[in-house]
């Protein structure tokens, strides 16, 4: 088990800055996900960790050893590719064996390792087949098995589930997590799917435009995003500007917003006078009787089964709330409550 330490990594391609001063520490046995939109630099960072790209500046340490200049073939990491990258002319068995042969492992030990991995991933019956004779899920398992057979210090995943259908994705997601936990492997996983990141990770690194926006547990990211980008990227959020008027009680801040004056609870003080705030659509309670209630007009409603998505407007300020059941029509005035602890203080307004 080895940790990964990324220190002040910069990556430039000509004039394009792909990564800017990225630092991150991944503990041994931890499952960390790099999450962000296309072009945010997450795959570049993974390629730097795996050794395919050398950063413009900065350092990568794996297991306490500086591997920044070590090529991938000499680096003790194993990568699961988005495309699976199985060798098409080799059988499943030979694909699993390829890395072990490169290590110069004895035949008996190789066979034992392959049997072990095949049993773990239910590939025993597929060993003689070629990759194009397998389903997408089976190919993904072979790709995972090929990486696992190497028993690397760090397991890397580059959007490995993006080519699978939704149902299979859920199954393989659980499988990957189970194997990672059972082997206590250090894993770094790249995805743009926030649901996948929240479901699988010990910690999530949200990236945007080559920078790390926030590193936190899935729960913390969802309930206490640090920036409006994170709030918006992780689930749905209503983000509005607010002026800080003062502190009513310790940790209870009075804010002036487009929805009127609101109170927000936060142990940490606001980072500026003019800030952004957010709250999750499901945080609002309809027909609330609390003091902090807001009245707004219903502009659109969308029935989603176990809840209803309501789009509201208050003097040009649009937002949405999720409620379990509602008897209201478009154009009606609705009153809802927003508890101070449900409001999150974000970054200063630029």
């Amino acid at each position: 088990m080895s940790g990964v330490f990324i220190r002040n990594v910069h990556m430039r391609f000509g004039r394009f800055v792909a990564l800017e001063d990225v630092s991150l520490s991944v503990a041994p046995g931890e499952f960390v996900t790099l999450l962000g939109p296309s072009g945010c630099g997450k795959t570049t960072l993974l390629k730097i960790i795996s050794g395919f790209t050398v950063p413009t500046s900065g350092h990568i340490e794996i297991g306490g050893e500086d591997v920044t200049q070590v090529p991938p073939e000499k680096r003790d990491t194993a990568l699961c590719f988005q495309s699976y990258a199985l060798f098409p002319h080799l059988s499943v068995n030979d694909n699993l064996e390829f890395g072990l042969l490169n290590k110069g492992m004895a035949r008996g030990e190789r066979g034992q390792r392959i049997d072990e991995v095949a049993a773990q991933l239910a590939l025993e019956l597929q060993l003689a087949k070629l990759p194009n004779q397998l389903s997408g899920g089976q190919q993904q398992r072979v790709s995972l098995g090929r990486a696992l057979a190497m028993r690397p210090k760090v397991l890397l995943f580059d959007e490995p589930l993006s080519n699978l259908d939704a149902k299979l994705r859920d199954q393989v997601r659980i499988e990957i997590r189970r194997i990672q936990k059972s082997h206590a492997l250090t894993a770094i996983y790249v995805t743009h799917d926030q649901a996948e990141a929240l479901a699988m990770s010990d910690r999530v690194v949200v990236m945007n435009a080559g920078r790390v926006e926030q590193v936190a547990t899935p729960e913390e990211l969802y309930h206490a995003p640090r920036t409006s980008f994170v709030a918006d990227f992780i689930g749905n959020a209503n983000v509005i500007d607010a002026a800080v008027l003062g502190e009513d009680k310790p940790g209870l801040w009075r804010l002036q917003t487009e929805l009127g004056q609101l109170q927000a609870r936060s142990a940490a003080p606001p980072r500026a006078k003019e800030i952004r705030i957010c709250w999750r659509p499901e945080a609002a309670e309809l027909d609330g009787t609390e003091a902090q209630s807001i009245e707004a007009r219903l502009t659109h409603r969308s029935f989603q089964g176990h809840y209803t998505d309501l789009f509201l407007d208050k003097e040009g300020c649009e937002f949405r709330i999720l409620v379990p059941q509602v008897h209201a029509d478009v154009g009606d005035l609705l009153r809802f409550t927003l508890a101070p602890e449900k409001i999150v203080l974000l970054e200063p307004v630029a």
């Binding site: 395919f52 991938p72 073939e73 090929r146 190497m150």
Partner: peptide, 15 residues
């Protein structure tokens, strides 16, 4: 020749 095959081979320690 697929880049990911070359990268997979390198990643698996191939000379």
């Amino acid at each position: 020749v697929r880049d990911d095959h070359i990268e997979a081979a390198r990643d698996l320690g191939a000379v």
